[in-house]
Simulated assay, not measured.
Amino acid sequence: MNFLTEILWKTLIETFYLTGMIILIGLILGVLRNNSIKNFQRSFGSNAVMITGFIGVPIHELSHAIFAVLFGHKITKIKLLQKPDESGVMGYVQHGYNQNSIYQQIGNFFIGIAPIFGGVFSIITLMKFMLPRVYNSFIDILIRSLHVTVLNKSTIEGIINSYSGLIKVIFSLKNFQNPYFYIFLFLSICISSHISLSSADTKGAFRGLCVIFVILLILNALNLTKYILAIDLIKYNILITGFLMISVILSTITFLLSLILISIK
């Protein structure tokens, strides 16, 4: 009984180490997105979501589609953009898969969370071409995070200071004099407004997460995870968090902007 409890607990911790930060940041993005959309609608009416949706929703849905193809799923129907239906759905990707394929079942998790990575990749790409100075600062932070070997108070403070510095670089006086900055900001707001996961995305990701948990449980029972998980989980989580942090920063900016618009209104 103690062996089973130990295996279950170890598997739970490993699953959290591998997916926990992605799920946590996804939840934060969801809260920011939902409140931002509500504020925009209060300021500009119920159709305000289309202002950001015409860019953000296609990127959201294409992210699902790309990961579905990567994991061998068959896309049966796709709608990149539509007016919100009664459930608020503005786009969708319907796909099927072989339930006997472990690879395709694991794919459900990555297909479900795909908009987070697709949105972040799109924003970073825009940054590279429109704000190269900000892009270089961001990449420098990611590279420095690879040298972290222990997570303590000093390390956490260093990470916080790095991203505080990145915000200052984004909103530097030089950028306010750059017309590309305003284009970048608008496009990033459109993307970040639709980067979070819908309830359908969450359900699909949860199915994949359960499969990942079962696989790790079996590997732990066979004492094989020491070979499979032979990576530095601290560096992995810091790198993942750093990569996704740009979406949190821009989603927070979007939320603050929505509050300012309500005040002006």
Results as ranks from 00 to 15, higher is better:
residue 198 S to Q: 02
residue 94 Q to Y: 11
residue 24 L to T: 14
residue 42 R to V: 00
residue 34 N to D: 14
residue 192 S to M: 12
residue 183 I to A: 13
residue 154 S to P: 09
residue 168 K to D: 13
residue 17 Y to A: 06
residue 218 I to W: 11
residue 176 F to S: 02
residue 113 I to Y: 03
residue 3 F to P: 03
residue 242 G to H: 13
residue 231 I to N: 02
residue 21 M to F: 13
residue 250 L to E: 14
residue 196 S to Y: 08
residue 33 R to D: 13
residue 237 N to M: 14
residue 237 N to D: 13
residue 113 I to K: 05
residue 163 Y to Q: 00
residue 238 I to Q: 01
residue 250 L to I: 15
residue 161 N to I: 09
residue 5 T to F: 13
residue 19 T to D: 02
residue 194 H to M: 05
residue 77 K to M: 04
residue 239 L to F: 15
residue 3 F to M: 08
residue 84 P to H: 02
residue 248 V to D: 09
residue 239 L to A: 13
residue 231 I to H: 03
residue 119 G to C: 04
residue 31 V to S: 05
residue 182 Y to Q: 09
residue 12 L to D: 04
residue 184 F to C: 04
residue 17 Y to I: 11
residue 71 F to L: 10
residue 31 V to A: 06
residue 200 A to V: 06
residue 243 F to N: 04
residue 13 I to A: 01
residue 12 L to N: 03
residue 38 K to F: 01
residue 204 G to I: 04
residue 108 N to K: 13
residue 233 L to V: 09
residue 180 Y to I: 00
residue 200 A to W: 06
residue 101 S to L: 07
residue 235 K to Q: 14
residue 108 N to H: 09
residue 251 S to H: 01
residue 141 I to N: 06
residue 40 F to W: 15
residue 203 K to T: 12
residue 252 T to W: 09
residue 23 I to H: 08
residue 166 L to D: 00
residue 50 M to G: 01
residue 209 L to D: 08
residue 207 R to D: 11
residue 164 S to I: 12
residue 122 S to E: 11
residue 210 C to H: 02
residue 10 K to Q: 15
residue 156 I to C: 05
residue 132 P to V: 04
residue 262 I to S: 03
residue 193 S to C: 12
residue 63 S to H: 08
residue 200 A to R: 12
residue 223 N to W: 01
residue 88 G to V: 10
residue 12 L to H: 02
residue 202 T to V: 15
